[in-house]
């Protein structure tokens, strides 16, 4: 039986209703946490769905309790009470009794640090837990798409490094999963990024890689950048490159930013945004 459901809908009320429906419960049987209030946005910008977590009241899943913010606070309070108790007993044992006033003051001083540390640790733990699950699910998502594409022997490994998670695909049909100029790989990355944004709490960047494609592509882009810069210097004419996804344009901007005589900028709209390389205008001023 499912005890917890996270629902997303344009308004908080709709989200709650959806969550209750999904669990088949009435409102008085459920504990509802509003994770995020919905935002209407303006002219389609800044719109955000409301997110609520609906839990069964008699649910006894420890993990779920940690996930919900309210109970986290209660937990911390309890921990603090325990600490206070500990300190009191410790003081009673070690120190000769002090006046009431000074005693409490001392306790407060001692408590300040553990409270913050604990809260941070709990919040971090909570995020890691949800995100780790989201990442696992996304890896599974890549595998099932690959299977449906006919790459039956496919596994996906993932590695997390400061807010960037790299999914590496191992498959006998890696070529197909990469596609011409990495088209399919980029499409997968796009879908994965969307899923991660939706599921994970913290902002995580997703990279999908297979057979060292990203590294190879980086070398290719480096060469392309150098060749283009040379051509621009020779012809003194701007050169327009093929449309590329933003992270590839970024790499070229970065390589050529070290080249003082050359300037780069992008034109057009995604997904047909392209890079223009030209002579630096500063020379003529």
């Amino acid at each position: 039986m499912i005890d917890k459901y996270t629902a997303q809908a344009p308004t908080t009320e709709e989200a709650i209703e959806k969550g209750l429906k999904a669990l088949g419960m009435k409102k008085d049987e459920a504990l509802i946490d509003i994770v995020e209030d919905g935002k209407k946005g303006f002219l389609g910008f800044g719109h955000r769905d409301a997110v609520v977590t609906v839990r069964r009241k008699d649910s006894k899943i420890e993990l779920d309790d940690i996930f919900s913010k309210d109970t986290t606070d209660i937990k911390i309070e309890k921990e603090i009470e325990n600490l206070e108790e500990d300190i009191k007993t410790a003081q009673k044992e070690e120190v000769t009794p002090l006046k009431e006033g000074t005693k409490t003051a001392e306790i407060d001083d001692d408590l300040e640090i553990p409270e913050e540390v604990q809260k941070d640790a709990l919040v971090q733990e909570k995020q890691d837990g949800i995100d780790e699950q989201a990442i696992e699910d996304v890896a599974e998502y890549i595998v099932s798409i690959a299977h449906q594409m006919g790459a039956t022997h496919t596994t996906v490994k993932h590695k997390m490094e400061d807010h960037t998670v790299t999914f590496t695909i191992y498959s006998q049909k890696a070529g197909m999963l990469i596609g011409r100029h990495g088209k399919v790989l980029n499409a997968l990355q796009m879908l994965v990024q969307t899923q991660l944004h939706k599921r994970a709490d913290s902002k995580i960047t997703a990279i999908v890689d297979a057979e060292g494609y990203r590294e190879r592509r980086e070398q290719t882009l480096k060469k392309l950048a150098k060749r283009t810069a040379d051509k621009v210097r020779k012809t003194k004419q701007p050169v327009i490159l093929e449309p590329m996804p933003s992270f590839e344009r970024k790499q070229i901007h970065r390589y050529l930013s070290e080249d003082k005589g050359i300037e780069t900028h992008s034109e057009g709209k995604d997904p047909h945004r392209y890079l223009v390389v030209e002579l630096s205008r500063k020379k003529f001023i």
């Binding site: 798409i145 980029n186 499409a187 796009m190 995604d270 997904p271």
Partner: peptide, 18 residues
């Protein structure tokens, strides 16, 4: 569909590649 059809494009790229 996604912003500017980004997701639709990604879905099509994968589906058409088969």
């Amino acid at each position: 569909i996604g912003k500017k059809g980004r997701i639709a494009k990604a879905i099509r790229t994968i589906v058409y590649s088969v």
